[in-house]
Design a protein around this nucleic acid. Sequence first.
DNA 1: CTCCTTTATATCCGTTTTTGATATATCACT
DNA 2: AGTGATATATCAAAAACGGATATAAAGGAG
Lengths: 111, 111
Amino acid sequence: MAKGKSLDELTDPVFYILVALVEPRHGYAIMQYVEEETNGMFKIGPATLYTIIKKLVDADLIEAEPDSEPRRKTYVTTAAGISKLEEEIKRRSRMVDLAKEVLQTKGRKGR
Amino acid sequence: MAKGKSLDELTDPVFYILVALVEPRHGYAIMQYVEEETNGMFKIGPATLYTIIKKLVDADLIEAEPDSEPRRKTYVTTAAGISKLEEEIKRRSRMVDLAKEVLQTKGRKGR
DNA sequence: CTCCTTTATATCCGTTTTTGATATATCACT
DNA sequence: AGTGATATATCAAAAACGGATATAAAGGAG
């Protein structure tokens, strides 16, 4: 099954692709989805996209749907992928919370 | 002053280093701080650390304190660095919120 | 029917980022 | 004198990213 390493921290593009694939989508649709959802702030080009898709399939975090049309290869986040995503949400939340806390403390003292 | 490019998205180690330097610290102390705060989950080695410090100084997001002891070079996040950090907190929060929302929607529908 | 744009996947290859290993030196303690 | 922690720094390789390019089919305009 899963052959690749477990990928502890997810990078931004990997995170976005995992999120996009909670709902089944094919590659091109992922690019559009991410661009739309971020209001054009974050764009994933084909090189990054297909490289990461390969890696995620290999890590068993997403999988290809067998019934996809010939011209479109549809993928979905696997159960393992959802778990990983939830884990990553927590990790990122903790990072944000730490930063907020540190800034707040500075604000109180640095007055 | 600032010579480097503005760095739109901050990577994880860059983020942690900026957070650590909201309070003045020297390199080695940054390594310890990040490791402690993340309960050993995230470690920054010397190569990553000093490479990033250089880049951040160049981008004017942190600066060296002139009065630091000979053996310790102390740095602090600049005003620009704080702004960047606040911006990045928002960016990461939006990413987390998007992911939460997507998972929640799936939960409601995927019953 | 032809041209053009959009859709769609895929890879090449250079740049950037990260990191393990290594080097060097000081300091504290025994 | 020796050991471990402190402290900074760089090298060289790996990993990640991304612009450019290639290919091809589908859809619409004229």
